[in-house]
Design a protein around this nucleic acid. Structure first.
Lengths: 164, 164
DNA sequence: TATTGTTATACTCTATAACTATA
DNA sequence: TATAGTTATAGAGTATAACAATA
């Protein structure tokens, strides 16, 4: 649902968002930035995530399902649509006759690189609204938060977000 | 795409995420929390957002489209499905014979309240991984960032996230 | 038998276009 | 004419279930 403050005062009187509202709003903002940049390349967020995880992997359909937290049948459709656009290719696995390896094409790699750099620029522009010292502080706090969370969940905090 | 660090060192050597990666990961994490809690009530994120914006509004279909950034035809379907579940009701507008007012039912209000409080608890639990002073610092920085961004875009930073 | 992947099916979500009714 | 809303249609994205091929 929408994050919402219980605060009923007028805008001019309110000077700070609650921590929960702030984090919720920030997450929506970042997601919107990603969605917008992806959309400029006719990519959905999930298609963009697919290309993203393939940047440094050549997984089977099965592994892709785990990486993206999708059912194998969903992966079939996702990859089929990306393949139809020439962004990824399917290759039979030499190691396992049942398996299929998915990898980026040149076009796919170019597209994801472009979208990634634009998204990065968006986030940097957002962060530039803070002073350098505030920026560093925010970055450090977010990093610590994520590392603590990941550690609690037995995950390596550093590989990418979302799925891999 | 997946947020990714260009850092190629091993996990044990890496001690901080880049600011961009951190914000991207954090946004995915918060979104997953929302998605999970919504899913427990058989709600999608967009259905949850619909209920969320209706908590303190009684908009027309048209206004709802602007609040959620959806085409009017999308709103028709969205509201139709929510109405079928007994979560919202449609009432003819007394002021305009063409317009329809959408509002929460008791069931809808209960559902969104429950999902909201669970989501809030998730975010608070996440934040509790930081010390109280770090928590305050993070909250303040995020708040300043969002206020600066909103001000630059001529938006009131305080009403809810995402759409309203 | 178990695993990998595809296909059939069903539903949500979204947009465009055509339509009705009201302003 | 313009606006509010619905409906028809098309497509992406998701899951479950049934299936074929391989291990």
């Amino acid at each position: 649902m929408e994050a919402r403050s219980a605060d009923r005062s007028t805008p001019a009187e309110r000077r700070q968002l609650s921590a929960v509202d702030g984090l919720a709003q920030l997450s929506f903002l970042v997601q919107r930035m990603l969605e917008r940049r992806a959309g400029e390349h006719d990519l959905s967020i999930i298609q963009t995530r697919l290309l993203g995880v393939l940047r440094d992997r050549r997984p089977t359909m099965n592994e892709l399902g785990k990486l993206l937290a999708l059912d194998k049948s969903s992966v079939s459709g996702l990859v089929e649509r990306a393949e139809r656009r020439g962004l990824v290719t399917r290759t039979p696995s030499p190691a396992d006759g049942r398996a299929v390896l998915v990898s980026l094409t040149k076009d796919g790699r170019m597209l994801v690189a472009e979208a990634a750099s634009q998204f990065e620029a968006d986030v940097l522009a957002l962060l530039n609204r803070l002073s350098p010292s505030d920026r560093g502080a925010l970055s450090g706090l977010v990093s610590r938060l994520l590392v603590a969370y990941a550690t609690d969940h037995g995950i390596d905090p550093f590989p990418s977000v979302g799925s891999d």
